[in-house]
Design a binder for these strands. Structure first.
Length: 430
RNA sequence: GCCGGGGUAGCUCAGCGGGUAGAGCGCCGGGCUGUUAACCCGGUGGUCGGAGGUUCGAGCCCUCCCCCCGGCGCCA
């Protein structure tokens, strides 16, 4: 049975007969030997094809084989300090399954070239590491919410109206009717939490803004939760506890991958709930002390956000935003009607917003008038408003940008690497 | 949408007082008894992003357009 590269390296034993399947990561020919670095999903290992140890046609096939050719190798393990990883495979037999054409990526390519060749670049060690970390992150999120009694649900991606007016939507043709790609499952989750109590979903969300920043994608993975009978305070606890858990799992399962990416794991190990929380008012005060010219009611821009993150070495909350800065569905704070029960969670090290959430307005009249105030047609929101007519309850939810969280955990300098096929700045290929 | 930078060989770039293009890497051939982004020798390589214009002559100057990168805004 074929073994993975990782299994063989971890055995650290000599003389084990092995069969390996993979791709030629690197190749060096010196004298009568060909050093083939065979790569599979788990890593790469040096395989030595010695002219005097294999059939002539095998040697010739490997001599001709180019980088990224797919190969099968049989041989036995040998501990050798000269091999990367300390173990190599002395080849007794092998086959080139497909001799690759000249592989375009050789090192030193520009961002643009690598993006055009994303389908090939995804084989890189760095990309493998990122995708494995993302896998663990998604698994940990699911595990946490399942264990905590939440139900996974499947909201639609094709929708008739916007959740918020601000974001630009991708328009599609739905049997001759205009429809839009979802930019949030929130309204549907609000509906579903009236049935299932606590729900969550993982869906793609779409934003048609032509954003030119390293933190925006046109299509991203949206993890959203919504819970009936839950007020903002309690939801903030859920958010921080689940994030603490997720970071812990990733550090546990993906230490090797984080090191491949050069991530300082000790910074992640310090992430413990509860996270610091400051109100919007306090944020403004902090920024004023830092010399920013901001006053109550101003939106927090990228520079302001980055300045705040330097005050903390774990994620932290900003909450109680001015009503004017936030969408109509956020619940107005009864003790201070100038603010809403909304919060953002910002990641440290300058990464910024990773979660946005709020308690939802549950009073029919208030919600109705805010929809009108914002210039929307209440008829478009009839089913959303109905929730406030048939057994309304306090409820809250948040949205988490999976690629944003991954970017922070993995220490990436651009969100495009947090997803295999990034859709951003009008890029649609591959 | 706004501001800034850029598109020259397969890749990364140099060339600019206008005189029809260079380097490194790659690739191809040869050499090397253990390579680690191998090394040594030889060879290959271009509608200078596109379309107009100025000029005896444009990669270089002018106009329009397209694409890419960085930042702002928008947000997760």
């Amino acid at each position: 049975m074929p073994l993975s590269v990782e299994q063989i390296i971890e055995m650290k034993e000599e003389g084990i007969k092995v069969e390996l399947r993979g791709w030629i990561h690197r190749k060096f020919a010196v004298g009568g030997k060909i050093f083939v670095w065979l790569r599979d999903h788990s890593g790469y290992i040096q395989c030595v094809v010695d002219k005097s140890a294999v059939e002539q046609n095998v040697y010739e096939a490997f001599d001709k084989a180019k980088r990224e050719s797919s190969i099968i190798i049989r041989g036995y393990t040998k501990l050798d300090q000269r091999a990367p990883g300390g173990v190599e495979v002395r080849v007794t037999d092998g086959k080139v399954i497909h001799n690759s054409e000249d592989f375009p990526i050789k090192g030193g390519e520009s961002v643009e070239f690598l993006l055009d060749n994303r389908h090939l670049w995804l084989r890189a060690t760095k990309m493998q590491a990122i995708m494995k970390i993302k896998h663990s992150l998604l698994k940990a999120l699911r595990d946490y919410y399942i264990a905590d009694g939440w139900f996974e649900v499947t909201p639609p991606i094709l929708t008739s109206t916007a959740a918020e007016g601000g974001a630009t939507l991708f328009k599609v043709d739905y049997f001759g009717e205009p429809a839009y790609l979802s930019q949030s499952a929130q309204f549907y989750l609000e509906v579903l939490c009236y049935s299932l109590g606590k729900v969550w979903s993982i869906t793609p969300s779409f934003r048609a803004e032509k954003s030119r920043t390293r933190r925006h994608l046109s299509e991203y993975t949206h993890f959203e939760v919504e819970a009936a009978w839950m007020e903002m305070e309690e939801l903030m606890k859920v958010a921080e506890q689940s994030l603490e858990y997720v970071v812990g799992v990733v550090v546990d399962e993906r230490r090797k991958e984080l090191e491949i990416l050069g991530r300082d794991v000790s910074k992640l190990e310090r992430v413990k709930a509860p996270f610091p929380r400051i109100t919007y008012r306090e944020a403004i005060e902090r920024l004023s002390r830092k010399g920013f010219n901001v006053k109550w009611g101003d939106d927090l821009g990228a520079d302001e956000e980055a300045a705040l993150t330097t005050d903390f070495d774990s994620p932290f909350f900003v909450y109680y935003f001015p009503k004017s800065l936030k969408p109509f569905y956020m619940k107005i704070e009864p003790s201070d009607p100038s603010v809403v029960r909304g919060f953002d969670m910002l990641a440290p090290e300058g990464y910024g917003e990773i979660i946005g959430g709020s308690q939802r307005e549950d009073d029919y009249e208030t919600l109705h008038s805010r929809i009108v105030e914002e210039g929307y047609d209440p008829a478009d929101y009839y089913w959303y408003l109905d929730l406030r007519k048939y057994g309304s309850v306090p409820h809250s939810g948040f949205g988490l940008g999976v690629e944003r969280v991954l970017m922070w955990i993995a220490g990436l300098d651009h969100i495009r690497d947090a997803t295999p096929f990034p859709r951003f700045r009008e890029r649609i290929k591959p």
